[in-house]
Design a protein around this nucleic acid. Sequence first.
DNA 1: TATGAATGAGCTTTCATTCAT
DNA 2: TATGAATGAAAGCTCATTCAT
Lengths: 200, 200, 200, 200
Amino acid sequence: MVSTKDISSKKRLKQVKLFESAFNLFLNKGFNETAIDDIVKDAGVAKGTFYLYFKDKYDILDRLILSKSCMVIKEALENTREKQQDDFIENMIIFIDYIIEYFKNNKRLLKLIYKNLSWGLFRRALVRQDEYEEMNNLKNIILENFKNKGFTEDEIEKNIFMIMELVSSVTYSCLILNEPGDIDSMKPHLFNAVRKILTK
Amino acid sequence: MVSTKDISSKKRLKQVKLFESAFNLFLNKGFNETAIDDIVKDAGVAKGTFYLYFKDKYDILDRLILSKSCMVIKEALENTREKQQDDFIENMIIFIDYIIEYFKNNKRLLKLIYKNLSWGLFRRALVRQDEYEEMNNLKNIILENFKNKGFTEDEIEKNIFMIMELVSSVTYSCLILNEPGDIDSMKPHLFNAVRKILTK
Amino acid sequence: MVSTKDISSKKRLKQVKLFESAFNLFLNKGFNETAIDDIVKDAGVAKGTFYLYFKDKYDILDRLILSKSCMVIKEALENTREKQQDDFIENMIIFIDYIIEYFKNNKRLLKLIYKNLSWGLFRRALVRQDEYEEMNNLKNIILENFKNKGFTEDEIEKNIFMIMELVSSVTYSCLILNEPGDIDSMKPHLFNAVRKILTK
Amino acid sequence: MVSTKDISSKKRLKQVKLFESAFNLFLNKGFNETAIDDIVKDAGVAKGTFYLYFKDKYDILDRLILSKSCMVIKEALENTREKQQDDFIENMIIFIDYIIEYFKNNKRLLKLIYKNLSWGLFRRALVRQDEYEEMNNLKNIILENFKNKGFTEDEIEKNIFMIMELVSSVTYSCLILNEPGDIDSMKPHLFNAVRKILTK
DNA sequence: TATGAATGAGCTTTCATTCAT
DNA sequence: TATGAATGAAAGCTCATTCAT
């Protein structure tokens, strides 16, 4: 006899398999170069099954990007909490550095999610409070600390947004296009800029 | 009697027509949604003629982006020279503001060239000295002035690069995604960040 | 109710229809003059269906040639066995004559498969033992008999090869190009040559 | 002042250049893979000029094959006359061996002209008495000698035709397809077959 | 004679999506 | 839920040939 939970698991299994197959193929072949056919063959399910769980190729990509981005940000936040400093600006630098180092080792993931690694995503990730309660707490701590420095809440949000845009855009350019050079020689200037932006 | 120049003009005419048709279609329908068929029909030439002048759809896009970006940058530089201030940081702000305002009125162009409006492109534009001699002069003036402020040449290049990335990325996000809000309420913070980055 | 076999049959039906359409069109219009479009229209299936069953136009041609060649050779072998003589050389002549007569009535087929009607094909046909068990038996009998005549196995293979090349090439020339004349006035000389080659 | 002959030479020059370019490209890229565009670019003339001298791509191929085949046959005949033996069958073997050895060193040429290297071509070559007077003399000698052996003229022509077909077809198969093996291990059997056919 | 820009029908191939089972 | 055969519009691109100059 099979329990309801087992059926649900079995059902979920195909979805998970499709998700993983799509992820691997997008990373290795690229999004445009991957056909639905490739995904279902890799996942070992029928073509129709794909459309049972996902609207289309862009649907699975979006979900993939959200999932992977959340993971990276969560990791970065956890790492920052572990190494927590007194100076909140330095915590920000640690957070940024973790993300940069992560993508240095996962360039293909960076390529895939680049266009969506932004404040918007960050916000979406923070909103999913059921999954990331802890993130929310941390976020509040960050906000609190900047307020103490004399920033308004609007200023904080906009500055964080700008920093996210700056960092992701520079990281992408250095790691993927090697423009204007390698990320390591860029880091001091980037961190410097971040520090300046965050200083009243 | 038809002069050699006229023949050459006639020849060029089709290329120009293709260029314009592609530009309009890319803007209105989007790049992926525009077929070569659409371009040649709009230009009123045969399909083969397209391949006489362009390698493929990406070739015409690249040339389009380069051409339009150069134009915007040139305009911005000219405008900056006209309104030239004593303070070079303020000149930079004027330059940036011009570009932002330009794209505020040409959102679809921004969408099209976003991924390529970067320092790399700027550099390519500057390199075309025959076309943009004046730009080169201005660039030298800028470099000279920052050196006086105590920046090394490396610092200048990297900071300008970061500012370009920051500005383009924030402009795109605000104008196209309206994220985290409208560009006008972002501007003060953005300009503030730029000023901080450019201050020793 | 539809059995599994019926579903499979239905599936196969389109492939068979494509096969037949391609065969007729190749015969009547020629290979190069036949477009995939022509084939699918004639078969009454969608273009994509063609690529479900065949890699490309050359794939269907190859399979067509193999199938038709096997058929002719099989018929010729069966006919030879029916009219079997004591003298093995005469059996060979009967075999050859059957093939010549066959193509006399199917000149367009000869045109289509000529380049591939060779010892290589013959060997491939013989190898398909599951489909042509009887052919294998006959082949063994032939080999056995020539060995008795004092030929080495190497000699037999090479002589059979040469005869196949000679016959197919002369048949093609006479039937298709009428060069140097009609096949019937060529036959005595051709058979004579074959007899000489097969005589120690 | 330019003489009529010079103009004619100049005119001929482009034709010759086209001929040579086509030959090299057909050999190196293959006939189907060579576009008229490739030929005219290589020859350094305009596209329209091609159609001034040749009907189409097949026209230039035909002329190429005829020209090159005549050359090979002429060389083979000259070589045979030099090494002339008393036995006319052995002269035939020398003639055949020369052609085989020639193509062993020019496999790509063999590939190109194979379908047309036949008795028909041989006859066409012999017919061009103005260009190949000597060939005609030799041909007559051959005919004379076989008549002495008791062959009718019809028998001679048909046997020579069969031998040409046999040799070219076997040579092609061995050299290009390596089927059923290399040409050198085939030669003894081939020459043996030729001798048998030519023996009353 | 010579040019070469222009043609445009034609090609093969892809692939997201559907739907009867 | 799950299948996978079938679809067919649409894509990018080629190239022999023409013709005004």
